[in-house]
Design a protein around this nucleic acid. Sequence first.
DNA 1: TTGACATGTGACCGCTCGTTCACTATACTG
DNA 2: CAGTATAGTGAACGAGCGGTCACATGTCAA
Lengths: 197, 197
Amino acid sequence: MAKDTKERILEAALEMFSQKGYAGTNIRELTASLGLVKSSMYRHFKSKEEIWNTLLDEMIAYYGARFGSPENLPPIPDSLEGLVAMTRHMTDVTIHDEKIIMTRKLLSIEQFRDERARDLATKHFLTGLKEMFTHIFAGMMDKGLLRKDDPEMLAFAYTAPISALIHWSDREPEKTEEAMAQIEAFSRHFVKTYGVN
Amino acid sequence: MAKDTKERILEAALEMFSQKGYAGTNIRELTASLGLVKSSMYRHFKSKEEIWNTLLDEMIAYYGARFGSPENLPPIPDSLEGLVAMTRHMTDVTIHDEKIIMTRKLLSIEQFRDERARDLATKHFLTGLKEMFTHIFAGMMDKGLLRKDDPEMLAFAYTAPISALIHWSDREPEKTEEAMAQIEAFSRHFVKTYGVN
DNA sequence: TTGACATGTGACCGCTCGTTCACTATACTG
DNA sequence: CAGTATAGTGAACGAGCGGTCACATGTCAA
């Protein structure tokens, strides 16, 4: 019946770990949510910890493919409104995608216990977006769309507040639309401050 | 022998909870770190959960006294350099104080499991500093030190990046001084952007 | 048809968890 | 000095944990 039980276990684990943490999750409940008994899990993973490690491997790979490779850097916007629109689109994806939300929650919970989670959290929450927007802002300065300034500093000043609002939305999902609106407002304020005309 | 065992239990609990989370902490290890056996804990708290609730009560009270009351709002700086200096001082305290560090970690870990932790996390990580600096920036605009703008938006744009760097320092304590330097650089960039002369 | 392999099951294992309790030692109080 | 409250102890508890294993079932190739 189960098409790919191993994959379903990983999905359920991501969900439970991101809610209760690794220590707060137990195998019985996890497998029961898939209509299995706990011993069945051991056909696919040799331990609870192996689930955790596999999950982290996948997250690292996914993150590397999505944000790490230079070939899928977003295009440099042609206008200030283009920057706002791109920001809106990226935010819309990352703030609503259940898997990405659960990944952020899991990293928040486990960042102080697991070294790989800690490293990934820093990339996810701090340096990843900053590097991407450093490239974007440098390009926009070249095009004369943004005032000449330190692109890395601007990228940090731009992405950190957006990340803070995304974290707020993770914590209080009923405020997601409000968070989106605040990100839009912040984005417009930013282009008003640093944009050229 | 023990001067105030109840207080020592709370301190040890804050330390362990902020490292391993509530579910990952066990009473035996906690009490052993104080030279007690586990049953002794039950002289002071009726359950593990009561420790957690007491800890949260204290955190809420501490936070309310420190950031909530209007009487101990910081004075409005008299110069742009004064804002940088005040920021440096506040950061220095909050980034090095072990108890405050552990509080932030604990809120990061438990924000998705406990409703009160969630609410406190939002105040701690997002709205608290923003409200304080909204007041400060409004005052500085009145004094003609900052360009006229939406003080709340500026406060958010100022405090969110600083918070992000403090979180980074929590995660990677060996980078604390680097985080301090980056906060200083960001602060100076901010006053260069929004300051009047 | 048979044998090999993958998948799922239920009973069971040893261990650790939070919690209880009778008991002891100590310190304060009338 | 006797009496009482307070703090700490070690043994024991029931429950739940992660993990193992002999066994049942289904699939598919030889």
